[in-house]
């Protein structure tokens, strides 16, 4: 008989490892990727692939350079890469994808200590970095089925998103609810189709990767505020459905705001966080300079997360409130 192992209990553990969870997230992102590819063509796939491959590569290079154990096996870099690609317009130049990946993996994630240590969502921070650096390229949206060329210089006719049509009074046809729901609209690669994102959400719920709290409360609060205060004809004249289906609300609420590292731990904390996100999205959309506020709203609540965690610890079993 071999020597027996001796260790303190517990002796068994779940098989639901970090990479299994990350793989679940990747699977959940696939419907949205398929719709993105269908609506915007191969170019969209190329953008997402470039982001993903460069994200994994930057993480690998960083760990080699710093002589750390390689962490690409946990698949978190793949998730970040896909998320970044989802937040870019299909016309995004490939060098910009790589620049975004660098900012995301090295500056936002690695500099702060890697997995679980970053204070803001890496993909969103990278998106905001790209927005600040190359604003016109970041809003070079195209109409659905515009046939963006794969490699050659892109000069397809840009087409404003539904939100910017409304906000900035740009010319264009406001899409119908059904178009917004299915994804037949202009926008970032991953954000166009609500139904694809909802399929991913349901998958994540079934696999118990995330809870319903943050996405449902976030989307609900945004919709209700828009309904109550977003209309042009006084209270309760806003468009609930339009406000939640347009922009990147579903992508943000389901996949970005629920990032483990940058969202609160307890259910009470998650409610506060989600309500905060919803309010901020409404405020930015209504009064801010940008037509869309989901990224900024989530980033702002990300940095508030340590504070929320501090004020909402779980109430200990058998200890009274006063203690």
């Amino acid at each position: 008989m071999n020597l027996l192992k001796v260790s303190a209990p517990p002796h068994i553990s779940t098989k639901n490892d970090t990479n299994v969870i990350m793989l679940d997230v990747i699977i959940a992102l696939m419907p949205a990727l398929i719709v993105g590819a269908y609506v915007f063509g191969y170019r969209a796939v190329l953008v997402v692939a470039t982001c993903t491959i460069s994200a994994v590569l930057f993480e690998y290079l960083w760990t080699k350079l710093m002589k750390l154990p390689t962490t690409i096996g946990d698949l978190s870099a793949v998730v970040s890469g896909i998320m970044l690609g989802f937040n870019l317009p299909p016309t995004a130049p490939l060098w910009m994808c790589i620049a975004g990946s660098f900012f995301m993996m090295i500056i936002v994630k690695a500099f702060f200590g890697g997995l679980g240590q970053n204070i803001v969502n890496p993909a969103l921070a990278a998106r905001v970095f790209l927005m600040a650096s190359w604003p016109t390229r970041m809003i070079a949206f195209v109409s659905p089925f515009a046939k963006v060329p794969l490699i050659s210089k892109i000069d397809a006719v840009t087409s404003p998103t539904a939100l910017s049509i409304i906000k900035n009074g740009l010319e264009g046809e406001i899409p119908t609810y059904m178009e917004l729901f299915l994804g037949n609209v202009s926008g970032c690669i991953g954000e166009v189709s609500a139904i694809a994102l909802i399929i991913g959400f349901v998958y994540l719920l079934i696999r118990k990767v995330i809870s319903w709290r943050i996405p449902v409360v976030f989307i609900g609060v945004t919709g209700l505020l828009s309904y109550a205060f977003g209309g042009n004809n006084g209270l309760f004249t806003g468009d609930f459905l339009f406000s939640i289906l347009s922009g990147s609300l579903f992508l943000g609420a389901i996949f970005m705001a629920t990032d483990y590292t940058t969202s609160p731990m307890t259910s009470l904390g998650q409610y506060i966080y989600a309500i905060g996100c919803g309010i901020l999205v409404f405020i930015i959309r209504k009064w801010g300079g940008y037509p869309e506020g989901v990224s900024y709203a989530i980033l702002l609540m990300n940095v508030a997360t340590p504070l929320i965690d501090k004020i909402t610890p779980p109430r200990k079993f058998g200890r009274r409130k006063a203690q």
């Binding site: 553990s13 970090t18 946990d74 890697g114 679980g116 590292t261 731990m265």
Partner: peptide, 12 residues
């Protein structure tokens, strides 16, 4: 049996 540490705490 239980596995050894495989990745950092990601605050899940």
């Amino acid at each position: 049996l239980i596995e050894t540490a495989s990745s950092k705490c990601m605050r899940c």
